[in-house]
Amino acid sequence: KHPFTHYCGGGGTGGCPPVGIQLEGLILPPVLTIDVVLGLLGNLVALWIFCFKLKTWNPNTLFLFNLVIADFLALVSLPLRIDALLRRHWVFGDGLCRINLFLMFSNRTASIALMTVVAIYRYFKVVHPHHRFNAMTKRQAALVSVFVWLLVISPRVPMLAYSHIKGSGNRTQCFFFTSYKEASRAIIILVGMHRILTVLEFVIPLAMLTFCSVRISCFLKQRQMGKPEKIRKAMRVCTAIVVVFLVCFLPTTVTTIGVWVVRTYRPWDCSAFYTFTQLTIVSLGLNFLNSALDPIIYVFSSSMFRKALCSSLPPSLRCGNDAAAENTSTSTSASASGTQTVELRSIGVRSRNEAM
Rank of each mutant, 00 (worst) to 15 (best):
T13Y: 06
G15E: 14
G25D: 15
I27G: 03
V31H: 08
L44T: 04
W48P: 00
I49C: 05
F52N: 08
W57I: 03
L64M: 13
N66W: 03
A70K: 10
F72I: 09
A74R: 09
V76N: 08
R88C: 00
H89S: 04
C97I: 00
I99W: 15
L101V: 12
F102S: 07
L103M: 15
L114P: 11
L114H: 12
V118S: 03
F133E: 04
N134G: 02
N134D: 02
A135R: 14
Y162P: 11
S163L: 02
H164K: 02
K166L: 09
N170R: 09
T172A: 06
C174K: 03
G192Q: 15
V203W: 02
P205E: 07
L206C: 03
M208G: 07
F211M: 08
T253M: 01
T256G: 05
V262R: 05
T275V: 12
L279Q: 06
L284V: 01
N287V: 00
N287P: 01
L289S: 13
L309H: 11
L309T: 11
S311P: 03
G320R: 12
A323V: 00
S329W: 11
S331G: 06
E343N: 13
S346W: 10
G348Y: 11
R352F: 09
A355V: 09
